[in-house]
Design a protein around this nucleic acid. Sequence first.
DNA 1: TATGAATGAGCATTCATTCAT
DNA 2: CATGAATGAATGCTCATTCAT
Lengths: 227, 227, 227, 227
Amino acid sequence: MRMGAVKSKRMPRAVREQQMLDAAVRTFGRRGYMAASMDEIAELAGVSKPLVYLYLNSKDDLFTACIRREAAALAEAVRAGVRPGLPADRQLWEGLRAFFTHTARNPDGWSVLHLQARTHGERFAAEVAAMRAEIVAFVTQLIAAAAREAHRDPDLPEREVAGVAEALVGAAESLAAWANATPGVTAKQAAATLMNFAWAGLGNLMADRPWTVPEEGDPDAAVAQAG
Amino acid sequence: MRMGAVKSKRMPRAVREQQMLDAAVRTFGRRGYMAASMDEIAELAGVSKPLVYLYLNSKDDLFTACIRREAAALAEAVRAGVRPGLPADRQLWEGLRAFFTHTARNPDGWSVLHLQARTHGERFAAEVAAMRAEIVAFVTQLIAAAAREAHRDPDLPEREVAGVAEALVGAAESLAAWANATPGVTAKQAAATLMNFAWAGLGNLMADRPWTVPEEGDPDAAVAQAG
Amino acid sequence: MRMGAVKSKRMPRAVREQQMLDAAVRTFGRRGYMAASMDEIAELAGVSKPLVYLYLNSKDDLFTACIRREAAALAEAVRAGVRPGLPADRQLWEGLRAFFTHTARNPDGWSVLHLQARTHGERFAAEVAAMRAEIVAFVTQLIAAAAREAHRDPDLPEREVAGVAEALVGAAESLAAWANATPGVTAKQAAATLMNFAWAGLGNLMADRPWTVPEEGDPDAAVAQAG
Amino acid sequence: MRMGAVKSKRMPRAVREQQMLDAAVRTFGRRGYMAASMDEIAELAGVSKPLVYLYLNSKDDLFTACIRREAAALAEAVRAGVRPGLPADRQLWEGLRAFFTHTARNPDGWSVLHLQARTHGERFAAEVAAMRAEIVAFVTQLIAAAAREAHRDPDLPEREVAGVAEALVGAAESLAAWANATPGVTAKQAAATLMNFAWAGLGNLMADRPWTVPEEGDPDAAVAQAG
DNA sequence: TATGAATGAGCATTCATTCAT
DNA sequence: CATGAATGAATGCTCATTCAT
């Protein structure tokens, strides 16, 4: 586990840096950028403040480093959760599961990305936006693939598809918070709910033709490395 | 327009208070709670800092007052945009339009509600959650109504419906930011995109049975008073 | 009773001024000069702040007015309590009784005089010192009278008498606080205690059996480390 | 001498802390708690304000630290000035000398204890009261010892003794201010004056010739108008 | 006579950041 | 590699005081 490492002297820089980032993510995630103090972060990391500055330069840079690390971790978790060969709906399902699983296991990191980074200046928001764009692009491409699989003309209006992808990602982000806050809702259930909604739509829900959760041999295999 | 009132002395308390709230919403919305300084708010409002404290007590109370005013305004805008007699899909459409219109016209207020209030302490988040719950409840009830209209058994699993409503509202919130940030996307288009997605679902989109935007005589009438 | 007058409009200046002084004495006595706010005083007096300024000019002047009123009241109480014709011990006894009675009935006023006025600048302290000097002079003269009554030479060293009078008044002041703070100690008992202590001491002084300072080899040795 | 140390950088914490306390005692003693500003104290100590906060936490804590240091110093000075083996009168004499000497050398510290701490909240007053109680107890016990030495029955009423001790300490406190303010009065003279006054008084008390309260027909007549 | 509206100035406190060692 | 010592610059908040009515 990352936190709570025993306070010991003289460790290699790379390790110390990770300890600092761990402390920073936790502190930024819970207090917010401005309310988090370098004092608190240094103490939580078990080092002196000057060392934090020596390694990470400034509060600004430290926050940026947190965003980058957490964004990369989330993107990687989703990427690793999706098996490329499968049909589009299956890929979307796997991506959503990986997403909900990772955010549930990593609430402070998710808070940094979803809440804190967007609330404190364009600079930070842009950093997250890059990763988000990557995910939106992935979803967009899945939608196009689904269209091809359905033998339909690929001339769905582009902006329409972009909007839908945006809506889908937004819904996922929102559900992540909801799942975290609602006791008894698992990552899998959250993913299923969203899949139903997205794939079938409300209209179909009424008509009793919901998309169904696929049976899996080893449901967690795909996201096991996300922790 | 609210801001930019001529700086004139000696006005009744109620008026000054609104000016202060205007300045505060703008400042909180752009800078965030912590980064916003009472000095800046007072200056923007054209008054001295002590007057802000005399009327609004503390930064905390001022922020709360902002949240309450903006939450009430948004809820009222949506409420006023929906005509109760219509079928469920029509009502949802009108609600979404009103929502996107209000948030587009009121980006700072929306930022306060959607970004800032959620990032700075449970107290503030709870304040927004109340209004959000109201909207989620409205959507939940629309979904149930739609089920009845479709002559289906009303035994949709409750948590499923709650999840779907949550996802829909989350998608709307996310699209609001997207529409504000993407030039050329109007409130109407954002609403249509989401409506298509939500009502028909991706599966139906593929099958070429999209929900269609209803033709309206006076499209803006319902939300005209929201400014 | 002074406090708690019904809030009514349009009363003659003299009355309003007394209400303000009542409120000010109470507030200054309990909070201290600096911690007392003009807001609180005005509210307690049931008037608006500008009116306080109109009548009493400034916080400084208001405090001075409090000191003067309370000093005059105390001096007058003592003066009125003493019947001039009586023997010196009887006069002292009556003076002490009057003093303890007045301070017990008037704790806020006494706090203003004894604690607050001495702690906030020479200006205020001097104001009290004047009244105190009057009392010390009265006591000094009683001691001289007692000496005459005892048919002793009136050549008691002057500074000695001054010092004794000072000590007596100081003891009285100290006992006043003690009596106020110790439940069950009445003004009369406090006066008797001090009278016993003081008069017996003075009596011996008169009888020419003073305690004598011991000769010391190294007078400062015992306190040398105190600096 | 404590003050006026050369302003030099980078000294050990303990030293800096004493400098700060020196400055604080001086400032609090002269201006009072509220009127003393942390800015002034920091400047007088030759450090920046944040350093004062780093070491002493808050104005409140700083004031408390001053009170504690000065109370301990005064108690210690008195304790060190008294040789336990001697007769009671001799011990009292030595205690008084030590007391007057210490307060004369330490006027700001004495002001903090005697004036400021008592005027600014129960919390601070209690801090001083503890030390004062110690001194009163010491005096009380001396009086009892004197009674034993005089071979008298030890059945002096307890409250009477407590009152006398209180009066004696009060007189001493009062004389300390008088001696400081009256040029040409030394600590020794002040002590002798009080010793004369007090010991002779007590002596008569011991000899069972107390002054007696006169019987009065209308005991309250003289002070009736004082309310 | 009386007050609602308004402010200049100051204060306790905190924080990101840097030296000197 | 690591830190104790130190600070410039804000920031939230309060208060005595004054106008315009």
